[in-house]
Simulated assay, not measured.
Amino acid sequence: MSRPPLSPERVIDAASRVADASGLTGVSMRSVGRELGVEAMSLYHHVASKDALLDGLADWVFTRIETPTPHGSWRAQMEARARSARTVLAAHPWGLGLVESRRSPGPATLRHHDAVLGCLRAAGFSVALAAHAFSVLDAYVYGFVLTEVNLPFQPGEPAEDFIEELRAVMAEHPHLAEMVAEQVVGRDYAYGDEFDYGLALILDGLEARFREGS
């Protein structure tokens, strides 16, 4: 069976698989070539450089995050986008350090950013409040995912097992012990459940500012 021809899209897709397996530090023209079963030099006909490869990966992430539209509720649109971004970045955590770091953003990145601002502006947000909303929502999502993927226990592993290891020092930290006793022990606690609560707090605050005309 013949191998499908190389294209920029195939190269970037292969780079995403390398990043999933080895992180961004594992991404190189050579490693992507190996993933595709070709020599690294053949990739330069489709992606000009390692920097262009990373630009393409950042764009690849944004193609997978739900893009808002100027129609319907701005709050529902921002909520859906935040949840989508969390899902995508949790699946591809190498994107956390990449998506806002590129000096040459690609077309999907630019379209996505413009759509977020366009949704808020269509709802009546001022330019300044739209910018503030964009910033605080992304900071929350990125920060939450960064914490979530680096927790000292795995998804599905009972948090109580981890807490049990700390029981000996809890007596020295009464407020922490109180929170654990009330929120974690016997409650099938999952850190990921905090996401919706925090997102609602931020959206409530933005909605209040919007109504005030700030």
Rank of each mutant, 00 (worst) to 15 (best):
S2D: 10
S2E: 10
P5S: 04
P5T: 02
L6V: 02
S7H: 06
S7K: 07
D13W: 00
V18S: 03
A21M: 07
G23K: 11
T25H: 10
V27M: 11
S31Q: 02
G33V: 10
E35S: 00
E39Y: 03
M41D: 05
S49H: 10
K50H: 15
L53G: 06
D55S: 02
G56Q: 04
L57I: 14
W60T: 06
V61K: 01
F62M: 03
T63S: 04
E66G: 01
T67K: 03
S73R: 11
M78I: 01
M78Q: 04
E79I: 03
R83M: 04
R86L: 01
V88T: 08
A90Y: 00
A91G: 13
P93C: 06
P93S: 05
W94Y: 15
G95P: 11
L96S: 01
R103W: 02
R103V: 04
P107K: 06
L110C: 09
H113K: 10
D114Y: 07
V116N: 00
V116D: 00
L120W: 00
G124W: 03
G124H: 01
S126Y: 06
S126H: 07
A128L: 13
L129K: 00
L129M: 07
A130T: 05
A133Y: 05
L137V: 07
A139T: 12
Y140P: 00
Y142F: 14
L146H: 12
E148Y: 09
P152W: 03
F153H: 12
E157P: 07
D161G: 07
F162L: 13
F162P: 08
E164N: 10
E165C: 07
E165V: 08
R167E: 12
H173D: 12
L176N: 05
E182M: 09
G186K: 15
D188Y: 09
A190Y: 12
A190Q: 15
E194L: 13
F195Q: 02
Y197E: 14
G198K: 13
L201K: 10
I202E: 09
G205C: 14
L206Q: 06
A208R: 13
R211L: 08
G213S: 10
